[in-house]
Computed example of a mutant assay.
Amino acid sequence: MTNPAAFHIGGEDRPGRWLVTCDHATNRVPEEVGGDLGIAPSDMARHIAYDVGARGVARELARLLDSPCIETDFSRLVIDPNRGEDDPTLLMKLYDGTLIPRNRHADATEIERRLTLFHRPYHAALERLAARRGDVVICAVHSFTPQLRNRPRRPWQVGVLSAWDKRVTAPFIAALEASETLRAEVEAMGERLVIGDNEPYDGHLPGDSVDVHALRHGRLNLLIELRSDLIATEAGQARWAALLAPILARTLTETGL
């Protein structure tokens, strides 16, 4: 089944070799799921429902890299597109202290329905874009909340996630740490530049988007996590895309990848 409403593609005809993805682009709950999940709007505005600011960064990053961008159009609470179909966190019933009423009694039939409507169409479209050229580089854009409930504040401004394939991530992390422009930007905020290597999360879940569309095919890849308070506004999204795009481009050029 195809469901174009499950995703949006921008710049499909752009010639660049990058493919920018945003798995958790929106907090929208489609009408097919009832239009809401029974939780407060304040909870739907939190990181539990989507990656705050990630969509704007992904779109602008793709534009600056003259490459396509694909993004979901459903909340991660509807069904998580960055999880494999057999992952126990595919459909969250409790997330960072919030109970998700409409997911609480979802059975295998309902999970299959949501996979068919949203998860699989997004991944089919992503794979089609990834296969358009042999030298594609997948750049997944996510954001992380500055602090989980009852946990310490996270110190990183940027995290770069990877599994065993560090062809892009290792030189990109080194380039971020060496960037005087980036350092000055962070110091102007009164912080010290801290780049996370597989922080704040481990870089690999079997069946996640990078695993399915990059690792299993030997495609170059990286996953960028930006702290969400830095990209909560359109200005912040544009600024961080502008900071990251030239470093990404130079990483490929200087490594000869």
Rank of each mutant, 00 (worst) to 15 (best):
I195G: 13
D107V: 05
A174C: 07
I100K: 11
R120H: 07
Q157E: 15
E191P: 00
A130V: 10
E185P: 00
T181I: 00
A175R: 14
E180H: 11
E185H: 10
T98S: 10
R151C: 01
E199C: 12
M189A: 09
D165A: 04
W156T: 04
R154H: 09
E112N: 11
T116F: 00
G203R: 00
V141I: 15
I138G: 08
G190T: 05
R133Y: 04
G190Y: 05
A188V: 06
D165R: 10
G190H: 02
A175D: 09
R104T: 08
E127V: 04
I111M: 09
P171S: 08
D96A: 12
L193F: 01
Y201E: 06
G134R: 15
C139M: 13
R113S: 05
R104E: 14
L117C: 05
E177Y: 01
V141F: 02
A125S: 09
P121Y: 08
R154P: 01
R113L: 02
D135P: 06
W156H: 13
V136M: 15
F172Q: 06
R167S: 12
A125H: 03
A184V: 05
A188H: 11
G159Y: 02
V158D: 12
I195P: 14
E127I: 08
H204G: 04
D135W: 09
S162N: 12
K166H: 10
F172I: 07
L161P: 12
A170Y: 09
G190M: 06
N150F: 01
T98R: 06
G203M: 02
T169R: 10
V158S: 11
A140V: 02
K166T: 15
E199G: 02
L193A: 02
R167H: 03
E112S: 14
I173D: 10
A170W: 10
M189Q: 13
A174H: 04
L99Q: 13
Y201F: 15
I138W: 09
W156F: 04
G134F: 00
A174Y: 01
W156L: 07
F144N: 05
R151G: 00
V158M: 13
E191M: 05
V141W: 01
N103F: 03
V158Y: 02
Y95I: 11
H123K: 08
V186N: 06
P101N: 13
A108I: 07
R128H: 12
G196R: 12
P101M: 09
Q157N: 01
T145R: 09
H119E: 03
A124L: 13
N198Y: 05
P155K: 13
S162V: 06
A175L: 09
G134P: 01
H142K: 11
W164A: 03
R133V: 00
E187Y: 00
F144E: 03
L126C: 12
A175Q: 11
V137F: 08
D135Q: 10
D165V: 04
A106Y: 01
A140L: 01
A108V: 13
L115E: 06
P152G: 07
Y201R: 02
T116V: 02
L117D: 07
Q147M: 12
H123Y: 10
R104Q: 15
R154I: 05
R102G: 08
A130T: 12
T98A: 14
T116C: 04
T169P: 06
S162F: 14
R149C: 04
